[in-house]
Design a binder for these strands. Sequence first.
DNA 1: AACGTTGCTTACAACGTTGTAGAAACCTGG
DNA 2: CCAGGTTTCTACAACGTTGTAAGCAACGTT
Lengths: 334, 334
Amino acid sequence: MRHRLKDVAERAGVSVKTVSNVVNGYLHVRPDTRARVEEAIAELNYRPNLSARNLRKGRTGIIALAVPELDIPYFAELARHVVTAAAEHGWTVLIDQTGGGPEQERKVAGGIGDHLIDGLILSPLALTADDLAGLAGIPMVLLGERIDHGPADHVAIDNVAAAHAVTTHLLGLDRRRVAAIGAQRTPEGASARLRLAGYAAALAEAGIEYDERLVAPAPAWHRADGAAAIRHLLTSGVRPDAVFCFNDTLALGALRALHEAGLRVPEDVAVAGFDDIEDGRFSVPTLTTIAPDKERIAHLAVDLLANRLTGNPDAPPQELTAPHHLIPRESTTP
Amino acid sequence: MRHRLKDVAERAGVSVKTVSNVVNGYLHVRPDTRARVEEAIAELNYRPNLSARNLRKGRTGIIALAVPELDIPYFAELARHVVTAAAEHGWTVLIDQTGGGPEQERKVAGGIGDHLIDGLILSPLALTADDLAGLAGIPMVLLGERIDHGPADHVAIDNVAAAHAVTTHLLGLDRRRVAAIGAQRTPEGASARLRLAGYAAALAEAGIEYDERLVAPAPAWHRADGAAAIRHLLTSGVRPDAVFCFNDTLALGALRALHEAGLRVPEDVAVAGFDDIEDGRFSVPTLTTIAPDKERIAHLAVDLLANRLTGNPDAPPQELTAPHHLIPRESTTP
DNA sequence: AACGTTGCTTACAACGTTGTAGAAACCTGG
DNA sequence: CCAGGTTTCTACAACGTTGTAAGCAACGTT
């Protein structure tokens, strides 16, 4: 049922290599030979065996995208863009879920069943630059804030500037008790640290004192964590009049918890998020957020990988910044 | 930098095959030989070349999951469960996005760069049973409602019963003008047809006349379509007092549009969805929905594939039904 | 002491493909 | 009609792995 070059060759009455040449679009094949071979290919429904081709060529045509969780909307949306961008290079994308654990991330960075993938786009949560340096590793592009100026190419947005912009937006609405949700003290919380820094800088610029009690930690950045953080803030004595959530799912959880507490958004409390996931465009109220250019991020990452693979594999690691912009919606401006 | 069995063999002073035996856990290897080999493996950081192994064994250890869109939450959540279930069999999952187009789906069903994957779990939108029959194809499991009793194993939930249950729930709240959102007349709309049938059956059982004007079509099942359908219904003259949306994203869009129209949910209009995506647990109001057992679906699909691969590949196609249940939340019961 | 049995190890071939090198056929211009 | 080049095709080896069959010890049994 499954045919090989040899079968096609016999049927077309040529050598195996000639069939291979036809399949690979080699130029010097006589038109009638080519036609005969193509006919045989069609008749047998021949498809090349990628394992064999890869073994021979040392390339698989597959790149992997490894993200902590697929059902976090931001990563799902990003994945879609990466698949599209990779298709332009003729690559298939193997999408992998690390769960954010160091063990799984290390395994992925080591190459998944080695030799299977040509390159990796990794969004690390647990892994450090040192971990990576220790891995012989395949060509790799890092996403997100966890590892900066590490041993591999890196694409991110300017988190400090973005957080600064959101906070300034909230302050511009005459809010004075702007809370922040999503702080993390763990080493994994690199994004949290940068966003907190932008938040603090904006407060300082506006001459408002940084109030520890308005900064709510969140172990993960899921909806439930956002809701829990709001409940915590509301019982802590200092009622905020605005909340900057470090991502959109936190913000959606916050909206929910504020609703449960009988507070109106944005009249009583303005809410802003980060990521611009689709949910935020349809929530009640719609969600003010920072929109990172996901398509751009995906393209930059894929192109960096392409450079490593086809160009100079030993060029020094590059640090690229993708654009972002603030999208004000109902949750801050009715 | 990258080593082969041969390198390990030389270092350990044994034959290539002995190293292979150690790697594959072959029993009859003397403990000291094994130790020496393992030491060499560790020193060289040897990792087997999967392309070569696959070429030799005819198996790749990769299965593919092909879904229409990754950033539809239902598919993202399903993907997570499939990855988990496949890991129990030692398989890596290559996740693929078809976009729901016939061309891409056919390509995937043909085996993605052939010989690369051992099996496929496909959630078809465009492909028909006849299309599939024509494809020589790899072992395959179908998900969803598009193809029923086709040439491959199939896992789905009882859509008619589920739709019947939701509709009955709405009728039980003394609603009499229950609308349905998501109808599709295209051949791709198999889910829509079944859910509409369940809806109609429940109405008939309650002695309520089926009103064409309360059935709103939706070209796709995204949030925007749900919102548009509500706007359409509200201008059509027959104001519904309940809405059964054929999936949760439609329902979230509907919630949004009802809010914009100044209608209260559930007081003025009760809303129910289908899929139990995470968003629905945090929306305002939270969303009544049908929860298909996604974990079970994933497990059944992976196990069916395992049977094809390791058991009888020519067994007649199986039709399995996964359980579902109704989860009443605020959008119907305040 | 010769025997079969068992445990451990190895040489070889094969999986299906493509790069290399070269042979055969075909041109071109003198 | 031949030298020199170009086009077209082919045989062979190699990519790294594992299955097969067979070799070699060491053992206990007769």
